[in-house]
Every structure is written in structure tokens, then in C-alpha cells.
Design a binder for these strands. Structure first.
Lengths: 357, 357
DNA sequence: CTGAAAGCGCTTACAG
DNA sequence: CTGAAAGCGCTTACAG
């Protein structure tokens, strides 16, 4: 058997490591200590200009890239946050995420995307990422049912975005009940007396808040709650189609207007109505909630409630980073309730008369 | 001045660290070495069952959470990948991202979201994250113009998803030209002889490939390319509205069908046509590209090309992880060309006759 | 302004 | 199967 002298046992190493240089190499090259190189990078104000120059030159020569894994480990900070959503491909969420990413990026934080798919295991796994230091905090949109991370771990930097009245812990949101009532009021002002509802999933906190607003609006207008014109969807376009069809088939008397708990269901409902030759808004008025980008392009353009997405995202990032920095001056269970916008478009018309099925 | 004996100088420390325990504490508690604790967690097969039990018990007692920052640093792996898109809130991208997240998560990788907003600085910053070890690799959708990371750094684990024929480096894509030609062929089979085009941004590689397919289709059918029915958009709904309006205003003779380079512009075009009382598909047929979720719900439901999103995302993750693991058996510039689906819906009808403006 | 040195919390050959 | 020890690449008081 042939022995090769000095042949080192080389462990398989990750790609690209061959030409990886470290801070020590830079220091040697620049003729300074590693401490000085480190300072030149992280606290240049503490280093003389001449030294900085030398270091820069050395860095270029060896094409040095600081190992952030080491830096983060050393400073016990990951400089990333996880953003949890039940479904990224939902346009409302993706639009908010876009804002979050922008604001986080601006502050030097990376965004770890967590699609929980309403699955508790996945949610837990992402929450564990902050417990294990892979992320410094969490922004969550619509927590999965009852389990809220805040309950189990109180000092986890956590913020809920677009939550509801009953949300535990810190929450940046809109007054869902008031906004929904606003919609009902508007329809009432258009002489509608028979206002249906396409609700979201029953257990969902948003459904609860918005249902409350719907009922309040009805009550204030002296209208009675009629279960036969309340259908249940699950916040998707498809479920809106089904819910509208169901309502048309089973209503004691057809509504002249329908409040939808989000835009997607409203879009689905319009589709269902169209295929039955029911005209929106001439025959039935429709309102949505969220003001997703598409709302202004559907036919007719949808009257809806706009949540100030970008503003809310910014507040969420801002406040989360403060919590991460240990600033607890704001009580941990504060709800920031932001103003919503009523967006008037073309999906509503004055009620003509009650329609009999 | 009063000196307080033994009062330690305490650096401000990140939240929650107070009750943080480390591997040494677990080891002490379990009466074993830190090496054994480490092995119990990472390579349990090398540890006796009895020891594992002891370790588990100790972990529970001190509520130990391994510091992944340390682990990743030590193993020189971040176990995360960055996913670069020009715009997350674009439904096509968010739908693909959703799949990527799922497949990455399944393989134990986190997804760092990078919204480049077609800005070169942002793109570079994210690419730098893999150079600095914060991410192990990149999946990019539609690189910003000419600058492709592959050019500058050849051993960066990089994959392009949904790129084009001219994409440098590894790419998972569809044959954009063939798919677009397929659309033209279909319209020709419906007796359309005057087929307009709403193109995307001029410099965009997708625009180039799809334009090629459009021209090929025209040529094969013996139709001539007429600039007056080619309008330019930028892949957004709004730009589709404008492009369609422009085309209607300036066409030498109105088209009987319009090929749109993506669904969003198709949706915008339908909106524009509607507001001019031009009926789709009776007066003008429309086809899109991408098959975003919404395509089936617009009015009429859109005939389009479906890219196999989930399949492509899976291949991308799969192959990227291989590259990260140092498997270079597949040539670095391989293009995986996946089959597209022609999705027939209701937005096209046989041509009646040429319409004169 | 700079350097020597300790140490962050793990992992992993190595020797037993 | 287990432990002692080295070391991953940085940062940061501390002393000069």
C-alpha cells in the first residue's frame, strides 16, 4: 500500500471555502491585529484613517468577506425577523409582506418567510427559530386559532399584524367591527334594507369582529338578522363563489346588497352572480374588505375597506425592533389601532326594491 | 466615591438572555460532558439510550434551547437560502414563493425573502448575504437586467427560476417562445388573422423570448407583423389597461385577438376593452400567460399558459441544495426546461370578421 | 489609536 | 459509548 507523505485528511468542505479568507489573513496582510481589522469594519470611527486604508487594501487583495455567521453568533443577534402568514400566495398577505420586507431591509434586518398554512406544527417550528436565536423576533399575521406564542413565552419579541380586538399581546390593527359597520351604514344610506353577508371561517377572529360590526350596523338601522342571507366562506375566491351560490339558492328573499368579509370572497361572489345573470351593482350591491390591488380592476371595481398596509407594516417593524433592542417602554399588550379608509368604487348602487326569489 | 464590592459590570444584553441556558449547563445537570450533550442532539445514534434519557431530562429541567447561531457558525452552514424576486406582491411570484418555502422547509432550510424591486443595489446586497455566509444559496426569479450573479462568482450556489433562453447559469424554466407561439397557433386555428400583442417591458428577457414566439407564430401562419397592434406594458394590470387603450386608439385596423405576455396585462386589457364596450371574447379574444390564481375568476375566465409552478419550485430547491452540498455532477449551466400547460378557458372565440376602426 | 487575550456556544476528530 | 481539548471567526473590554 502506498503511503503519501504529508497527504492531509481533508474533510469534505462546503463549496467555495477554498478561496475563503478570514480576518486573520487580512490582519497579517495589512500588518495590524485582527482587533484592528474588526474595528475598521464595525467601528471605523475608532481607527485612524491611515490604518483603515491599509486594511481596505488588504481586504481587496484577499477578497475578504466577513463571516456574518461568526459575527452574529458573537453578538448574539441574527439580524433577521420571521414573518408568519397563513398563506403567502394570498394577495393581501403578500402585499403586506412586501412592505415589511422593505422596512426591515431599511433597518438592516432580513426577513425569514414563514408560511404556516394554518398548521400548528409549522407555526411552532418558526417560533422555535427565535427561541434558538435564528431570528430575533416575529411578526405574525393572523395566528393559528387559539395558540398564541405570547401565551407561552412572554418575552419573545412578538408582534401581531392585522389582528383583532381579542388578539393577545401587541397588535397593529384596524377596527374591524367599526369598518364593517361602516359598510353596512353606507349600504343603508343607499336604501338597502336587505343586506346579506358572506362571512369568513367561523372560528377566525376576523370573522368574529366583522360579524359584530355587521350585526351592529343592522341593529342600528332597525334591520333584522336573517340567517338565510348569511353564507360562510373561507376567505378565498372560490369559497366566495360557493357562498354566493348557496345564498342565492336558499335565501328566503334575495338580498339587494351583500357585505363580504374580504375582497377575494367579494370577487368570487361577483363571479357567481354574473354567471346567474344577476347584475352588480344594478341588482345586487357588493362590498369587500382589504383593498387588495386587484379590487380596483374587477368588474365593477370593488367598493371596499383599505387597511393602511404600508403604514401598519412600518409600525410593526419599528416596534418589533424596539422590543428586540430591549426597549419595553410601551406596554407589551398595546394595540395600535390604525385608521382604515373607506374606498368608494362602483360595486354599489341605490336599492331599487326588494327582489322576490 | 462609593465602590460596591463584586458589583460586576454588566453589558446591556439582548432580551430573554437572562433565562438562557447553554450546553454546558445541561452537561453539568446531566452529569456528562458537553460533547455528549452535543452528540445526543445531533447524532443520537452514537449515544447510549440511558445517557440520552439523562440528557433529555436535564434539557427539560433547564429549558434548554440549542443556540443555532453557534451551531450554524460552527458548521459553516446557515441552512437558509435567499429567494430573490423583483416584486413579492406580484401574484405569480408569491405563488411560486409559496411552493419554494414549502419545499425548502421540508428539507430543513429557511427562506430569506429578497424583494429586489428591480434595483441593482438591493440585488447585490442579497447576493452578498451568501458571500458572507448568511445564506447558503440563491434562487432568483427574473434577474435584474444584465447583471447576473453567476458572471461575477461562479461557485455561488445559484439557480434561476422561470428564466429565459438566454439566462446564464442554471435555470429552471419553460419554453417561453414555444408557449407563446402555441397561443398564436391556437388563435389562428380560430380563424384569427389579425392578432395583436401586449408585450412586457422591452429589455426584459421574457419579453424577448415571448416576442420571438409571437413572431414565429405569425410567420408560420403567413400573417404579417403590424406594429400598430403591438403595444407595450410592464407586466402589471395597470399597464395592461393603458396598452390596450393605446392599441384601440392607434391601430390601423382593430385586432380580433390579443396575445398578452402575462395574465395581469390580460386582465387589464379586458378591463379596458370592457369600458369601451368591446366584448371579450365576442369582439376580441384575449390570451394571457402564467395562469395566476385569479385567471380562472376573471370575466371571462382567461385562456392562458400555465407554468408548472410547484414542480419548478421543487426542482429548483432540490438542485440548489445539491449544489450547496457540493454535488456538481450536473453541469453548472444546465437549463431544465419543463413542460407548460395550455389552459383553455373562455376568453377566446372564433373570429367573426375583421373589424374596421 | 492599537494589540493581546478571552470568550461567544457549539462540534468533532482523537484517544480512551 | 464517552470525555478532554481544540477551534470555528469573530468582538470587545482592558491595558497600553
Amino acid at each position: 500500500m502506498l503511503h503519501i507523505a504529508f497527504a492531509p485528511i481533508v474533510a469534505p468542505r462546503p463549496k467555495g471555502e477554498e478561496n475563503m479568507s478570514n480576518i486573520r489573513e487580512v490582519a497579517r496582510r495589512a500588518g495590524v491585529s485582527v482587533a484592528t481589522v474588526s474595528r475598521s469594519l464595525s467601528h471605523p470611527e475608532k481607527v485612524s484613517p491611515a490604518t483603515i486604508e491599509k486594511v481596505k487594501k488588504a481586504i481587496d487583495e484577499v477578497n475578504y468577506r466577513p463571516n456574518m455567521l461568526a459575527r452574529n453568533f458573537r453578538s448574539a443577534r441574527s439580524y433577521s425577523i420571521v414573518v408568519l402568514v397563513p398563506d403567502i400566495s394570498n394577495p393581501f398577505f403578500s402585499e403586506v409582506i412586501s412592505s415589511i420586507e422593505m422596512h426591515a431591509h431599511k433597518r438592516g434586518y432580513a426577513v425569514l418567510l414563514g408560511d404556516t398554512q394554518d398548521d400548528e406544527e409549522r407555526e411552532k417550528r418558526y417560533i422555535r427559530m427565535v427561541e434558538t436565536r435564528l431570528a430575533d423576533g416575529i411578526i405574525q399575521m393572523r395566528p393559528h386559532s387559539v395558540h398564541n406564542p405570547v401565551e407561552s413565552n412572554n418575552d419573545l419579541p412578538y408582534i401581531n399584524l392585522c389582528g383583532t380586538e381579542g388578539t393577545l399581546g401587541c397588535c397593529i390593527r384596524v377596527d374591524n367591527a367599526a369598518a364593517t359597520k361602516h359598510m353596512v351604514d353606507y349600504l343603508v344610506s343607499l336604501n338597502h334594507r336587505r343586506i346579506g353577508l358572506i362571512a369568513g371561517l367561523r372560528g377566525n377572529p376576523h370573522t368574529i369582529d366583522r360579524l359584530k360590526g355587521y350585526k351592529q350596523g343592522l341593529e342600528e338601522a332597525g334591520l333584522e338578522f336573517d340567517k338565510s342571507i348569511v353564507a360562510e366562506g373561507e376567505y378565498t375566491i372560490w369559497s366566495g363563489v360557493n357562498a354566493a351560490n348557496h345564498m342565492m339558492d336558499t335565501a328566503a328573499e334575495l338580498p339587494t346588497a351583500i357585505v363580504c368579509m374580504n375582497d377575494q370572497m367579494a370577487i368570487g361572489a361577483m363571479q357567481a352572480l354574473r354567471s346567474r345573470n344577476i347584475k352588480v351593482p344594478e341588482d345586487i350591491s357588493i362590498v369587500g374588505f382589504d383593498d387588495i390591488d386587484y379590487a380596483r380592476y374587477c368588474d365593477p371595481p370593488l367598493t371596499t375597506i383599505a387597511q393602511p398596509r404600508d403604514d401598519m407594516a412600518q409600525v410593526a417593524v419599528e416596534y418589533l425592533l424596539r422590543r428586540i433592542d430591549g426597549d419595553n417602554s410601551v406596554p407589551i399588550d398595546t394595540h395600535f389601532v390604525r385608521p382604515y379608509d373607506f374606498v368608494l368604487r362602483k360595486s354599489c348602487a341605490p336599492a331599487k326594491k326588494h327582489q322576490v326569489k
